[in-house]
Design a binder for these strands. Sequence first.
DNA 1: TAGATTGTTAATCGATTAACAATC
DNA 2: TAGATTGTTAATCGATTAACAATC
Lengths: 216, 216
Amino acid sequence: MPKREGVSLSVIKRLPRYYRFLGDLLRKDVTRISSRELAQLMQLTASQIRQDLNCFGGFGQQGYGYNVAALHKEIANIMGLHRHTPTILLGAGNLGRTIARHMNFESSGFELIGIFDSDPNVIGQTVRDMVVADSASLEKFCQAHHPRAAILCIPKDVAYECAKNLMSLGVNCFWNFSHYDLAVDFEGAIVENVHLGDSLMTFCYQINAAYPEEEA
Amino acid sequence: MPKREGVSLSVIKRLPRYYRFLGDLLRKDVTRISSRELAQLMQLTASQIRQDLNCFGGFGQQGYGYNVAALHKEIANIMGLHRHTPTILLGAGNLGRTIARHMNFESSGFELIGIFDSDPNVIGQTVRDMVVADSASLEKFCQAHHPRAAILCIPKDVAYECAKNLMSLGVNCFWNFSHYDLAVDFEGAIVENVHLGDSLMTFCYQINAAYPEEEA
DNA sequence: TAGATTGTTAATCGATTAACAATC
DNA sequence: TAGATTGTTAATCGATTAACAATC
């Protein structure tokens, strides 16, 4: 059982990246790797890698390094990717449907068990072998199937009310794609925000910083 | 002209969020705000806000605070949102089409001028008043229209080759949705990665940390 | 003017890096 | 064993917070 109290957010945010790189190595049949080699690959310092991993336990062996397959598995375990958190998706517009189709929920610890929308034109459509249900039926569904997490692909202006409602139905984990900053208002909830608009603006900043006013 | 040397990445990543909150205030007809009030709203410290803003210039007024409309405009200017960086999108699958339709490029400093795919089933489709072109025509297009940025909604295994090719065609800014870590291999490029898979795993970690093994 | 609030410097806190003893 | 590389402690670096003089 890994030690885990007080692991910093920066370390946590690096875990999926470690997992990806180790997966790549695994596919290339690399069996062992040292922190120095992995550091070079990932453009980190060897120190940081050893520090990061030791937040959760000593997975390496002195003089040898790390076993790629074992470490890959350990990190999956730390993140809980073996779980099947029952999850619903709200908002089956362009973005919602794409997320439903594009993501590999099973290999990331989730199980998508329902898709909801309030638009009559969208209700009844099939997405990923699932029929989009009416948001009006959400309460009954939650009482029957107890989803723990919700993916919010809904407009900004309904995000707050929607999340509040979900909290009252026992759903308190949100993967939030709306432009609304959920975390600010929901202290008790677990929120992972995906702000695509922010990312695009950050991208713009970087271009603007590198090529100031060139084509303004 | 704002001072700008050596602004840290953490500050830059907060800019879009400031911009969003100021926009919200503007829509509510709030004309002035103090760093203390804004801090409460955004769940930051007043100190941090003043520090952040002063990286770019003194936009406030002692004893008064900040003029919401002016500050909003200043931040837009800092990020370069008035620009029209000519941009192409590669990969018109589910994700690519959704990004093309969903994002407001114009208000974020970009102009989408072309969409490309290599799948004959996708080529010729219309997305956002644009006909998806054959990737084979990319070189000619670049020579004619000189896009500076590319949105990569392509599979992981072609990301490296594709980016390399684009660099040779003068495109060196990438908004990367592929699961490949572009930044690692392209020192000269400007890369903004969007790793949805990583985000989902981070979400999983947080749930797993809060509710350990409950439903494993 | 007095009160409020900024801009900025100094203090604190946390994260990253370096170093090295432990050990495979 | 000798060489390599970890786990871990100490040093450094950077980012956040606190404090306060400047000033509207």
